[in-house]
Design a protein around this nucleic acid. Structure first.
Lengths: 235, 235
DNA sequence: TCCTGTGAATGTCTTCACAGCC
DNA sequence: GGCTGTGAAGACATTCACAGGA
């Protein structure tokens, strides 16, 4: 008999969860090289993080390493996959067949990774009924029935900003509790649901910020100055 | 005469920088409603964050609000835009004309927001020379000349994972110090450069993690258990 | 000797709570 | 009275540094 913490239910920090998929990818690469064991150091290097972080992250999942040796690649892969819930498929529905929606539905990378595109929907009557890869575009009003028919677990919003919140509400109403939002709009969901966002323009704007700083760098190399109170001009 | 901190050079937390584009979008919406002044409370609500955070974030940029009143929409917009470096255009080059690269180059949302697509490049000789919207696909070897010709400031990597690091190296070599990486691969750049990544499968995997937790919730509702030492089975 | 697992220290971000100004 | 700006407290995340098992 023994008293221990059930690791499978330990709270895992968000930051750690966000890195698990990276470790997973790295482990697959390492596995492809026929390496049977891997150190936190190497895992870290290939994942672009530092070794202490890798060890701490993995320790949240359980105790899988061997001191003096490292981690057994195959079994760590299984553990990380299980923790991420990747032992089964999670069908997705793509909402919005515009430029981005089309690209996503044709992308193919989703199905391979356990996220088959179960359905594609839109509001536009002209688009409904058209073929899209293997799928026929269906009307968004059919969501509830589509969700149960295909076991949809995740909804991807690829509509213009205006429709995004409405789409999210419909997804939630249809029982979809995980949403990935590509629309450049703030979308809110109930606490029980999960929402992640990908905003392309936002990423570019962040880059723009740092890019501009570079240019400013040379000209404004001071933090503290003596300046006129009202004009702000340097004396 | 007066001693003061030059706000324009203050270090702004990364987390704050990442929210500025959201505030910017919100401010544009508020402006469209002809509202001339806005409180941190309202700005927060529309941006999906809390009011204290908005105030602290904005305070890093300077002192723009009026106590008892709020922020003047127009002038705050100018300040945020300026801070983000959006007072000028930043031409981008898209590398890789696959599914995603095509979608991005046709997207149009970039140009509107100050990130015109200056060029599209690929390695595939079959793609080079083909028309893509307004642009002719060029060979990646021409990057240095394309960069100076179009004043490219940002490179977007939309290639398969294998080529990503090489593309990043070529971008850096051509003088592009800001990179947005869509390839599902770890890419490293020199310290002076900025790199951001968007990984679609990764986002889905994170959602999968939380989704799975939902299902586990009911069955494993305990944190501490008495269990057999070796098997881990509950006694 | 090597490399994991983890407390403790440090650093960063968020939130609170209220003084200060309109 | 209302709302900003900001120290201080608290929560969270990263990194250090080393004990301890292989």
């Amino acid at each position: 008999m023994w008293r221990f913490v059930d690791r499978s239910r330990r709270r895992i920090p968000e930051a750690t969860v966000a890195r698990l998929p990276v470790y997973l990818r790295t482990l697959l690469e390492v596995q492809a090289e026929q390496t049977s064991t891997v150190s936190s150091e190497r895992l870290a290097e290939l994942s672009g993080v530092n070794a202490a972080k890798v060890r701490k992250d993995l320790s949240y999942l359980g105790t899988f390493g061997t001191r003096g040796v490292g981690y057994e690649v195959d079994s760590l892969l299984v553990e990380v996959s299980r923790e991420l819930g990747l032992t089964r498929d999670w069908p997705v529905v793509i909402v919005g067949v515009g430029n981005l929606g089309s690209a996503l539905s044709n992308y193919g990378g989703f199905g391979d990774r356990g996220f088959p595109v179960g359905a594609v929907v839109d509001t536009d009557p002209l688009k409904v009924g058209t073929r899209h890869g293997d799928l026929i575009v269906r009307h968004i009003d059919d969501l509830p029935e589509i969700v149960s028919q295909f076991g949809i677990a995740i909804g991807i919003i690829a509509t213009p900003a205006e429709g995004a919140q409405d789409v999210a509400d419909r997804l939630i109403a249809a029982g979809v509790t995980s949403i990935l939002n590509f629309a450049p709009a703030v979308v809110t969901v109930p606490d029980e649901a999960s929402l992640r966002k990908v905003d392309l323009a936002l990423e570019l704007q962040i880059l723009s910020f740092y890019r501009q700083r570079e240019e400013l760098g040379a000209s404004l190399d001071r933090d503290l100055v003596i300046a006129d109170k009202t004009t702000g001009l340097v004396v």
